[in-house]
């Protein structure tokens, strides 16, 4: 067998290496330009979500990061606590579902499903619709919420989105987690 000569190996290797080097440099530059903007966007989507579930608050202050989520204290102009916004995560049909829950005085004042893009469009994605999320308003936070199909009793139940029981349950699961975090961190203080 003929031995490959130096040039035959060296030139392709070095040219591939140079291409890689250039591309990586281009990526590093783009990353440097866009990374702050990307971080801002991510923070913004959470911020907007906190505003939705806790509309009276003017600013938010991180209380604690727990294993299940983060709890923020909502403050008005006079630095009075007007509620808590808690972010929590549960696994839905296609991936993670991220929910922001607003709680004040042991009552849920609103929820917002701020990430459910891994769910099926037209089915699980409808969990972020007002018609589903508004059902949580006014439920109490010290008793767990269930899907009405599973539980015939009164009170703590919501109707699942049609044909999307798994996604709906994931949202409920996340809200229940948020309630647990609220009780651990805030408890009866308020």
């Amino acid at each position: 067998m003929k031995k490959m000569n130096f040039k035959e190996i060296f030139i392709p290797t070095i040219s591939l290496f140079i291409i890689c080097l250039f591309i990586t440099a281009a990526l590093a530059v783009t990353n440097a330009v866009t990374s702050t903007k990307i971080a801002e966007n991510e923070a913004l989507s959470q911020q907007q979500s906190m505003k939705i579930v806790c509309p009276d608050a003017k600013s938010f202050e991180l209380v604690k990061e727990t294993e299940d989520g983060e709890i923020y204290k909502g403050l008005d102009e006079n630095s009075q606590t007007v509620g808590y916004a808690i972010s929590s995560v549960a696994s839905g049909y296609g991936g993670q579902i991220k929910v922001m829950t607003g709680i004040n005085d042991g009552k849920i004042i609103g929820i917002d499903v701020y990430y459910n893009d891994d769910e099926t469009p037209g089915l699980g994605k409808n969990t972020s619709n007002e018609s589903f999320t508004s059902q949580f308003k006014g439920l109490v936070s010290d008793d767990s919420i269930v899907v009405s199909k599973d539980y015939a009793g009164e009170g703590q139940q919501v109707d699942a989105v049609t044909s999307s029981t798994i996604s709906s349950k994931a949202v409920i699961d996340a809200v229940n987690k948020a309630c647990d975090i609220y009780h651990q961190e805030v408890g009866g203080e308020q």
């Binding site: 294993e67 299940d68 991936g95």
Partner: peptide
């Protein structure tokens, strides 16, 4: 790798 999220139990 998307399912690796150290902040959750999943």
């Amino acid at each position: 790798l998307q399912k690796v999220d150290t902040t959750t139990a999943y």
